[in-house]
Design a protein around this nucleic acid. Structure first.
Lengths: 175, 175
DNA sequence: GTCTATACGGGGATAGAC
DNA sequence: GTCTATCCCCGTATAGAC
């Protein structure tokens, strides 16, 4: 995770990673079938960590939203990892890519969870928001992903949190 | 362009490309200093083509907007190329990447042009739209980029054009 | 100016010894 | 479970033919 985050996927060799773990690259490949699979496991692990830290089913919906916004700010500490997700989710669009199924599933789950959260928030807002939670969920996730791309390239000219809050306000939610 | 679009940047070798052009890889490298630079020139070329086809300074702003929406639909014919842009814009977040400056400049130009278009459209709308054109431009571009990521992974569950139109309608523009 | 031939270092992956 | 040795392909650089 450390090396991929710092330098990206292709810039790091299995020999680098193995050396940091005190092995040769062949030894590393005993534990992982290939570099791609190693990457997927790193990404999966990372997302599980972030999720279990941020999500608590006992939280009220408004707090969950606020925690997700904080997570956005936190991500800005690790541009390497953010870039890795952006890059790999692009690569993974190829159905033959080893991470393809993982990412397809990831976005479906993400959309469903976000839509569920929005449904509650829309109903609780005063006045209630009339938009379709599923459509907004897709837009919201797209907005965050796209902002990350722009922010990675030009950090000083992009304020991800502010832009997302503006979008939510525009919908009629106070974030 | 064809090969990069089909398989992505790293999956294609200079030897592949050269073979398709009826040369050896060394011959190819006579015309391009390296693989990275070849990629940049392909991307630049592609964007110039799309731009000069779609943009006419004599068009009224509403037509320009509509043409851009059509371009979105057109992009859905070449998922490889869309994926390439997504992928490379992620890679290029590294300041050492050969396409870094190109992409930073691309997004600045894109934001400025979009903001300008939105400024006019906002003023002409009935009633006039009160949002900040610069902020909306950033959101709009992010939305399109993010939708592309989701669409690449799961084409059947993402309608890029509809989502963008919904966003514009939300703002108070009829697209 | 255009290209081929060739070589170098490094990458991911595999086979088999310990 | 980890190693060494090896394989083949990659991007790149150079020398030289036409």
């Amino acid at each position: 995770m450390e090396l991929f985050s710092r330098s990206g996927f292709h810039a790091v060799s299995l020999r680098d990673i193995a050396a940091h773990a005190g092995m040769t690259h062949a030894g590393l490949l005993h534990h992982f079938p290939g570099k791609d699979e190693l990457l997927i496991q790193v990404l999966t692990r990372r997302e599980e960590l972030a999720f279990t830290q941020a999500y608590d089913p006992d939280d009220p919906p408004a707090l969950t939203l606020s925690k997700h916004l904080d997570q956005l700010a936190l991500n800005m500490r690790t541009p390497g990892l953010v870039g890795l997700f952006v890059k790999v989710s692009g690569e993974a669009s190829d159905p033959a890519h080893p991470a393809h199924d993982y990412f397809v599933q990831r976005y479906r789950t993400l959309r469903a969870g976000t839509a569920e959260l929005l449904r509650t928030l829309f109903a609780q807002a005063t006045p209630p928001v009339e938009h379709d939670p599923d459509a907004v969920a897709q837009q919201l996730i797209a907005l965050v992903d796209g902002l990350q791309t722009q922010w990675l390239l030009d950090p000083d000219n992009v304020d991800m949190r502010a832009s997302v809050v503006a979008y939510l306000t525009q919908l009629g939610l106070d974030a």
